[in-house]
Design a protein around this nucleic acid. Structure first.
Lengths: 197, 197, 197, 197
DNA sequence: AATGAATGAGATTTCATTCAT
DNA sequence: GATGAATGAAATCTCATTCAT
């Protein structure tokens, strides 16, 4: 079980992530992954001790990176509006750079979370909620966001809209993740209606 | 194979829908459904000829109803803003009334769509896009929505935000689907920012 | 369980025979038969107590008739050659009149014979062999058939060639079973070679 | 899925062929085959992807060999009588060497042929008919076979008689396939009747 | 005579995983 | 690092049969 930075490991994880994202965790067979890697399914077990552990490693790596980025943004100490813009932009950027990982997180977390080994997903969810909800609450308190918002509801709307974009966002397309973020923030902050609408 | 319309069939479909929504289509076993119904798994095949055909029937029924409602709204002939409000409200209402069906549509359509028997999902998607995109385009043309919108992008944001709500909306909770719709439309049309923000 | 001459019974047996002949006994489901009769599979059990008993009744009826005919031929007391011609002709005729029954006998007897309830098939086989083999032996003894024949082998060749014809003989075709019998007897008795061949 | 050619595969196919021949394709369970091989039924799927594909491989292998032999005979360029003798003898020989395969071809082809994957059986049948029918037609034209033969009928009689022999021929018995062939050709060419008969 | 619902046994197949080589 | 063969558990599905109504 070669643990440290084997590049073969990384390749295999990347393949697995792509397949998990495309077909779903349960529907992706160990043989699918092995086929994609050009080896036999049994051979995968020289690298990982289970299919679950692949998903685990994929998610852990992704979440560590994502929350690291969030931490940096918070550490910068900007106001609620700028912070919101930054986390939204960073989130769309993570969709751009790690689409497979985001998709797995989006689609599988709910089910995986129920397994003890994935308990950390529950914690990450709580952490995530605390961060985003906090930004909104601060913003309402600071008067930069409307006073009549149901913060919890707005939090959910934003969270879902941002992450679900992984379903259609194309990393190779003309529309950059920054552009998507800008458009979304425009709508979110000012609405789609005209003054007269 | 009893005719569609038998009440036992409907009961079983309802149970299946709930389980498919909770655990996912692939992870729900035929035995799970049979257990829930208090019969043996083989007995289900007296009513349906496969697990797939259960999903088929669930989705067909749901989509027929949903698009029927949409058709009525369009037929009413209101302006873009009112029409948008009506379809958003109707969509949240369908989440309220058919949460399992919406969840299945959200979570499984992408995979099921690839099977020939579910080809109609592709058509429904196109129909859906045409309707919602059309409302937005009309609204921009009529000056009730901002001229600088990327309509396709806004369409996706709205679509995703509305439907993904099925993940957290609780039909038995205090927050009604109408209230959710109102909040969302408020944000969508006017943004969360204050004038001064 | 209506036993005596119900015409519904006869209809159902006829349907079953056709299906057993076409698809094979094991591959024909009770539901196939019920479908063909326009009733539900459970309803068949008002007429017969099992799928096996249908096959039983079909075979018994057919064999009684066939061996009745053979008995009449033997009772006529003709010479070996005429008797052989008569049983061959009668056999092709039974293919004409009862193609489904013959096909079942041909294709399923080997397997059914192993079940206790079909033990009579073994007896019938022995009876059949005794009759045909006897005719050939008599013929060789009487000098109407060649002295150098391996009677057992010739018996098998004739038996197989005649009965296997059920696979291609078409009761509705232009070629009558009598014509087929004549052609076959011509070949059998005189060969296909020319004197000079 | 190991490449065709693995020796384990060949062993398993041979076992399967024997069982298919004895019990019939549908009545032979995958477990029967696995039991005979001393492994679990699921393990068979390491080598073959379905029961059907086993039958497929068995039949393909057999037919390739058989038609190869026929091609050699035709290529030898003998007259109709010698060619007929050669193909009949070769056919009885194939019953001797591959009794299981012949039995499967005899008993199951009719049903398997209806499946798309076994469409080649239809082609082989046509090829077979063309060859045998051609020999007979040539022979009638050349005057070595009687002028009054219904060639199509004779073709069927010969075909059936030869192949159906698989039902009783015993590869381990005293009667060799060559002896059977000689007896049959004797009857076929000269008849069983005496000149005076 | 038939329906509608179910049983229960067993079939084929899937697949993560193990392990000797 | 990989192969090739297998396990074992569980999945979907089939189907003859039963039985209350």
């Amino acid at each position: 079980m070669p643990k440290p930075g084997g590049s073969r490991r990384a390749e295999l994880l990347s393949l697995a992530a792509r397949l998990f994202a495309e077909r779903g965790f349960v529907s992706t067979t160990v043989r699918d992954i092995a086929d994609a890697a050009g080896i036999l399914s049994g051979s995968l077990y020289h690298h990982f001790d289970s299919k679950e552990s692949m998903a685990d490693e994929i998610l852990t790596g992704f979440l560590d990176e994502l929350f690291g980025t969030y931490a940096e943004i918070v550490a910068a100490g900007h106001g609620p509006r700028e912070t919101l813009e930054a986390v939204v932009t960073a989130s769309f950027d993570s969709i751009h750079r790690r689409p497979a990982e985001v998709a797995i997180y989006q689609n599988e977390a709910k089910h995986l979370m129920q397994l003890p080994r994935f308990a950390y997903l529950v914690d990450r969810n709580a952490e995530f909620r605390k961060l985003w909800n906090g930004i909104l609450t601060d913003g309402v308190g600071a008067g930069v966001f409307r006073q009549d918002l149901d913060v919890e509801l707005v939090y959910r709307f934003i969270r879902d809209t941002v992450w679900v974009a992984v379903r259609w966002y194309n990393p190779d397309g003309a529309l950059t993740s920054d552009a998507v973020a800008k458009q979304y923030l425009g709508i979110l902050l000012d609405g789609i209606g005209t003054k007269s609408g």
